[in-house]
Design a binder for these strands. Structure first.
Length: 287
DNA sequence: AAACCGTGGTT
DNA sequence: TAACCAAGGTT
């Protein structure tokens, strides 16, 4: 029973993270989950605390223009998430009386919330019994249960079934286990150099039992190079937009990157995303 | 459903 | 140093 072993280990070894504090609240947990989508814990914590001090409720965020959310997002990356979080706050305010919903389908209907985030909020904020599957969970299951070094590409049904099969019956133990297996993947059963010597389930690990076979399945698609990419150029334009409260002119933008065609392409995609708004004299953040 | 979307620390 | 990787979501 890896769930009881992992839960005991987690109770004794969990990192002291803000969203694990007593009474952190559903809104704080929702904000943290948005920020943690592909951004490391250590970079999230300071932005999260600023954010919640300034906007302690969904309604307080919904009351300001999206530009303020994008600015406060700072350099967390993927600024569309700031826009989506603001949109979710508006939806929560208008559709749910300002209360973060606890129902999976209600959560999934919010902008920027997918399977992982909906389940994380329902489980961690409300204690509901749902399998929660993130990249850490998938890696631990691949190793400890399936005996392979890496998870195969994500498959919603398979992943939820695999986690569901391990989930304790009681909602409280289940919520703890969802967090515990993620934590194990984050700090012990890491992607590159797993710390098997200190793993609380090493004696139950199928990968270790098979003497750590090399992964032979489908590799996940490699991330495209960032340097010189459209993503880099978008990032430069966004930093410029965030840096001022007046509009950014074409001349300003031209100084950011030498390839004019790529600059145009990046700017057009930001406009399409609603992150840059054409104005008389240039571009602004969405107000 | 594969590709796209930021940023910065680690190896 | 270049590649890898990070509590995903959307199209």
């Amino acid at each position: 029973m890896i769930s009881s072993a992992l839960n005991s280990w987690f109770v004794a070894n969990a990192r002291d993270l803000p969203w694990r504090r007593d009474g952190f609240g559903a809104w704080g947990i929702l904000v943290s989950e948005f920020m943690l989508q592909q951004t490391p814990v250590n970079r999230v914590i300071p932005r999260l605390e600023e954010w919640l001090t300034r906007w302690p409720t969904p309604a307080s965020l919904a009351a300001v223009p999206p530009s303020e959310a994008v600015r406060a997002w700072s350099s967390l990356g993927y600024p569309r998430r700031a826009l989506w979080l603001h949109a979710a706050a508006v939806q929560i305010t208008q559709l749910h009386d300002g209360v973060v919903p606890s129902d999976l389908n209600d959560l999934l209907a919010l902008t920027g919330i997918g399977d992982y985030t909906a389940r994380a909020v329902a489980a961690f904020a409300y204690g509901h019994r749902h399998p929660v599957v993130d990249t850490n969970t998938r890696r631990v299951i691949a190793r400890a249960i399936a005996g392979v070094g890496e998870p195969s590409p994500p498959s919603r049904g398979r992943d939820l079934d695999a986690m569901g099969a391990l989930l304790p019956q009681s909602a409280q133990e289940a919520a703890l286990f969802n967090a515990a297996i993620m934590e194990l993947g984050a700090v012990v059963c890491t992607s590159r150099r797993p710390h098997c010597a200190v793993c609380p389930i090493r004696d139950d690990c199928a990968w270790r039992a098979a003497d750590y076979p090399e992964y032979t399945g489908t590799r996940k698609t490699v991330q495209k190079k960032f340097a010189g990419s459209d993503r880099q150029v978008r990032g430069l334009i966004m930093a410029e937009l965030r840096s001022t409260h007046r509009s950014v002119t074409d001349a300003d933008i031209a100084t950011l990157w030498s390839d004019a065609a790529q600059l145009r392409r990046a700017l057009a995609s930001l406009v399409a995303d609603g992150l840059a708004i054409p104005a008389d004299d240039g571009y602004t953040l969405p107000t």
